[in-house]
């Protein structure tokens, strides 16, 4: 008998989510690790945006950062090394209704996943990509990554790294169709939170490089910036990352930068005298590949088969 089910169906009442609703497994990151700060900021973002856990997915590759999906009580996909972005693009293509986040690291994204990184930027599908950049391979215990500083002693370069590090910001800014490029630090929770929030509301792919302390292997790399906040250059603008006064007072070294000014963004990113944080570039009008991939999502199996058949028939003689 049909009909009974209709009677019993009703819309559940609106739910209110608290921080615990997003807390998954207990994090196994080392105490003092900057990843904890990112996790907290993301959980607060989810709570403040009241994202439904069942409509949120975190995709990761391999590395310390990529354990992130385990610690969120949402859907997650712990993927292959360097392949977080193509998986996320796939998720976005088929499930545009989900909130997609990507957590990846400097080794995962800038080394083995470089090709995917470039093309994901170009596809500009709506998602938040968080790069946990600790300048080292931490999970496998101190190997040189593409952003490891020159001269840094590591297990792969015991006598010091030969080459200067890759600058991910300039690379990203150089990719056509990159639409949101930001950089922040884990040790300033308000700035980190504000950056992720801005990234979440961006209509395309948001590339957020998070300078993340590794207390065991690269503690000395970030120590100068922590102890002397003036070495950090805070980019401010009405269209940039909006932070409260306390953060502005801590990072007194500031520059007004319009996120639509790509040339100045390049200049700031290229200047290595300071560690710039804030929004380098944003273009909300950039093309998005997921606007094309959603075509045909509502098709039934029969419709798909009929469409395929009609395409094949075009080649019939």
């Amino acid at each position: 008998m049909y009909g009974l089910k209709n009677d019993w169906l009703y819309e559940p009442s609106p739910r209110a989510f608290v921080l615990e609703d997003y807390s998954g497994a207990v994090p196994r990151w080392c105490p003092g690790c900057g990843d904890h700060a990112v996790l907290t900021a993301v959980q607060k973002l989810c709570r403040d945006e009241q994202l439904k856990p069942e409509e949120t997915v975190f995709v990761s590759g391999i590395g310390c950062s990529s354990r992130f999906p385990h610690y969120m009580k949402t859907y997650g996909f712990h993927g292959l090394h360097g392949r977080a972005l193509p998986i996320a693009c796939g998720v976005r293509s088929r499930r545009p209704d989900l909130n997609v986040f990507v957590s990846t690291g400097d080794g995962d994204c800038f080394s083995i996943g470089t090709a995917h990184w470039i093309h994901a930027l170009r596809y500009n599908m709506k998602m938040v990509v968080m790069i946990f950049d600790n300048n080292i391979y931490g999970l496998t215990k101190k190997q040189t990554s593409p952003t490891t500083a020159k001269g840094k002693h590591s297990n792969t370069h015991p006598k010091g790294t030969f080459l200067s590090p890759l600058n991910p910001i300039t690379v990203t800014l150089g990719v056509g169709n990159a639409s949101f490029v930001a950089q922040t630090v884990d040790w300033s929770p308000p700035h980190l939170y504000a950056t992720l929030k801005k990234a979440f509301h961006h209509p395309g792919l948001s590339f957020v490089r998070i300078m993340q302390r590794c207390p065991h292997f690269t503690a000395e790399v970030f120590k100068p910036f922590i102890e002397d906040p003036t070495q950090v250059l805070l980019m401010t603008h009405e269209n940039g990352i909006q932070v409260e006064g306390a953060v502005s007072r801590v990072f007194s070294n500031q520059i007004v930068h319009d996120p639509s000014d790509l040339n100045q963004a390049h200049n700031i990113a290229t200047n290595l005298d300071h560690l710039p944080i804030g929004l380098f570039y944003q273009n909300t009008e950039a093309e998005r590949y997921d606007q094309y991939t959603i075509n045909g999502l509502g098709f039934s199996d029969d419709q798909k088969l009929a469409g395929l058949q009609s395409e094949l028939n075009r080649f019939s003689i």
Binding site: P31, G34, H36, A37, K44, P189, P190
Partner: peptide, 25 residues
């Protein structure tokens, strides 16, 4: 608390003395 990065250092040191608030700080 607003500046806390939730890194667990203090909590691991003495979980009775330090605790997280509603914002996990």
């Amino acid at each position: 608390s607003d500046l806390c990065t939730s890194c667990n250092e203090c909590i691991n040191l003495n979980g009775m003395m330090f605790a997280y608030n509603g914002d996990k700080q």
